[in-house]
Amino acid sequence: MTTYTITLANRDGASYRVAAHRPLLDSLRDQGVDLPYGCQYGGCITCAAKLTQGSVNQKAQVALNNRQINDGYVILCVARPTGDCTLEIGVDSHDKLYRNPFLDPLKPHELKADIATPLKEPT
């Protein structure tokens, strides 16, 4: 079984070995990490965490827009690690997750993937 090391930067750097094939929410909760969650299928953003190093597969998430993804957010209930990762967890990692949509609107390429207009490649 492939396993990776997950380090929680805002929990004194605590680290955990987790399976590659399981969602991070399940693996970390099983090891006693107290994490927020809601829908548990990748649709509601409650369990969002910030990935500061490493990479995950979160193809199943439908909650994040492209700006949130660019800011490093991952949806722990569906994200599976594809290498060692460092995360900030909980609402103390949500500094860039929520924004007033009237004061700080999204640009066309920052919308959710299904409605975003891709940025033009420089020619």
Partner: peptide, 12 residues
């Protein structure tokens, strides 16, 4: 739900 649960985007 996948639209309103994560928050409100005016563009949507």
């Amino acid at each position: 739900p996948n639209t309103f649960m994560p928050g409100f985007d005016l563009e949507e």
